[in-house]
Every structure is written in structure tokens, then in C-alpha cells.
Computed example of a mutant assay.
Amino acid sequence: MPHALVLNATYEPLGVVPQRRALILVLNQKAVTVEESENVLHSATRAIPAPCVVRLTRYVRVPHRGAVPLTRRALFARDGGRCVYCGAPATSVDHVIPRSRGGQHTWENVVSACRRCNHIKADRHVSELGWRLRKQPRQPTGIVWRIISSGRSDPRWVPYLAAFGGGFDLDYLIENVSA
């Protein structure tokens, strides 16, 4: 089933719910539809366009959230789906400081790489090859990254996510991280 983006009363992204749940929020007047999808949900007496983006009518305080989980999908979104060494389309994950040499599996040490660069680098340091990173890896922050890493996305959500997320490649998100 398709999903809908839930926004706080301040238009801050909160999460993703099934379209059916989003429609229930709207029907119970706990949310208003911001954008509709092409799907139509039917009851015994009516047909209602399914919401794609809903905004809550009352502000919900969001508790502090922990670190964003390190997933392949979120990593490729952070790096724009490109190899951090040469800029070619990325197909694999690489550790800047190899794990065999004490490197950790953390956001600051893991990058997306193309197959060729990953094979050439193997278990060596970037400095040994004379390479340098196109962009220094860092841990993403915010709820937007949780939505991206969930794998549920819709191009219509991008304006709402971009306003609060930052740090990810919008074109990559639109093309590759759709439900």
C-alpha cells in the first residue's frame, strides 16, 4: 500500500504512514490534506482521493531522537548516489580507513564508491594511493534522514523534506528513493 508523509502543524516532517491511516486522520479532523495522490480509497457510499501529504491540526512535541541508522539507502542518499573518489555512479560501500586497519563502521568512515575505485583501493588508506575525497563524510541529522532511510518516498514530498533536511542530493532522492 502507498504511504503518506505526515507533517507537524509547523510543516516539520514527522514520519510516514500508510495512506489509509492518513485518510483516517483527515476524516477524524486531526489532520488536513496538503496534497492528494492519484489513488482513490472507496467506502460503501463514497470515493475519496487518498492523501499524499497531511498536516496535523495541532502541534505535536517531538522528543529528542537518537542517531540516524547507517543504512545503504541513507548512505547513497547522503553521497548523491555517486562515488566519493571519482564521481561515477556508486554501486558499493567502502570504508575510508579499512576495517582491517582499525576503521570503524560509522558515518564518518563509510562512503559510497563505484566498483572500480573500491577494487583499486582494497584495504589501503586513501593517502597511500594519493586520492582524496570529493566530500568529507559526516553523520546526517534530523527526521528527514529517517524518512529517506525507510525507503518510502514520493517525489511530491521533496519540497517538505528539503525545507527541514538539507545535506542530501534532491535529484538522487527523486530518481532512486521512491516507493
Rank of each mutant, 00 (worst) to 15 (best):
A50Q: 05
P51K: 05
P51A: 12
C52A: 15
V53F: 05
V53K: 00
V53S: 01
V53I: 15
V54T: 12
V54S: 01
R55P: 00
L56D: 01
R58S: 09
R58W: 03
R58H: 12
Y59G: 03
V60A: 13
V60L: 14
V60E: 11
V60S: 11
R61P: 06
R61N: 09
R61F: 11
V62C: 09
P63M: 08
R65F: 08
G66K: 07
G66L: 11
G66N: 07
A67Q: 10
A67R: 13
V68H: 01
V68S: 03
P69K: 04
P69W: 08
L70E: 05
L70N: 06
L70H: 07
L75D: 02
L75H: 03
L75A: 12
A77F: 01
A77S: 09
G80K: 00
G81H: 07
R82W: 02
Y85M: 08
Y85P: 00
C86R: 03
C86V: 06
C86I: 10
G87P: 06
A88M: 04
A88T: 13
A88K: 14
A88Q: 14
P89I: 04
P89E: 10
A90E: 01
T91K: 08
T91S: 12
S92M: 10
V93F: 08
V93C: 10
V93L: 14
D94C: 09
D94F: 06
H95D: 05
H95K: 09
H95P: 07
H95R: 09
V96T: 14
P98M: 11
S100P: 04
S100M: 12
G102C: 09
G103M: 04
G103E: 02
Q104T: 12
H105W: 12
H105D: 15
T106Y: 04
T106R: 15
N109E: 13
N109C: 11
N109A: 08
N109S: 13
V110T: 11
V110G: 00
V111F: 02
V111I: 15
A113M: 04
A113C: 14
C114L: 04
R116N: 12
C117V: 06
I120N: 02
A122N: 13
A122S: 15
A122Y: 09
D123F: 10
L129W: 07
W131G: 01
R132S: 15
R132E: 15
K135H: 13
Q136R: 15
Q136E: 14
P137D: 09
P140R: 02
P140C: 10
T141M: 10
G142R: 05
V144E: 01
V144T: 09
W145C: 05
R146L: 15
R146S: 05
R146K: 15
I148D: 00
I148C: 06
I148V: 13
R152I: 05
S153R: 04
